[in-house]
């Protein structure tokens, strides 16, 4: 088993922390993981992205020209990262902010209204967790609970945020079910 995913969006949409949680959870499940961010002026404003790889085996390259999945949280990310996905892969689109469609026909496209769901939950900042929930449900790479376990590590001192984030994960997963 090996899953390569690129997560991309505006700075502030939480794509980096979404990737970090996935990597953390993978590690806690005993998998090999890597998390590689974009860095430099890109980080300041503009779009941010990270590549996460979760695998049963030693991870070769921590970056990939053809991920299994792209999660795009805004329009520039759709344009940049949908074309890379390997044939048969998955594209998760934050349909709250992206109206455009992809012209790829050889991949599975899942539209998730991440911001709308997050707003329903009362906090737009958990849109990233909605997307992550959809991703986990679709790929089955890790159980949702493993992300919750990782949150306990990553959100140390901010444990009160965990229930909301957990709900967001579940709501995202429900979109795929």
């Amino acid at each position: 088993m090996k899953q390569e995913v690129i997560m991309a969006g505006f700075g502030g949409q939480g794509v980096m922390s979404m990737g970090m949680l996935l990597a953390y959870a993978g590690m806690m499940e005993g998998k090999e993981v890597s998390w590689m961010p974009s860095y430099g002026p890109e980080m300041r404003g503009g779009t941010a992205n990270c590549t996460v790889i979760v695998s049963d085996k030693r991870i070769a390259s921590p970056i990939t020209p053809s991920p299994d999945t792209s999660i795009v949280m805004n329009l520039p990310s759709l344009d940049k990262f949908s074309s890379m996905i390997k044939p048969g892969g998955v594209l998760i689109i934050n349909s709250s902010l992206i109206e455009k469609d992809t012209n790829r026909t050889d991949i599975e496209v899942i539209k998730v209204p991440c911001n709308e769901i997050a707003n329903e939950l009362g906090n737009s900042r958990v849109a990233n967790m909605v997307a992550l929930g959809a991703y986990l449900q679709k790929t089955g790479i890790l159980p949702l609970e493993s992300i919750v376990k990782a949150m306990k590590k990553v959100f140390a001192g901010k444990e009160h945020l965990i229930p909301l984030n957990e709900t967001a994960l579940q709501r995202g997963a429900a979109v795929v079910k």
């Binding site: 590690m27 090999e32 998390w35 590689m36 991870i59």
Partner: peptide, 10 residues
């Protein structure tokens, strides 16, 4: 290199 510096791994 930049990748070793910026990357996260266990």
């Amino acid at each position: 290199d930049g990748m070793i510096g910026q990357m996260m791994e266990p």
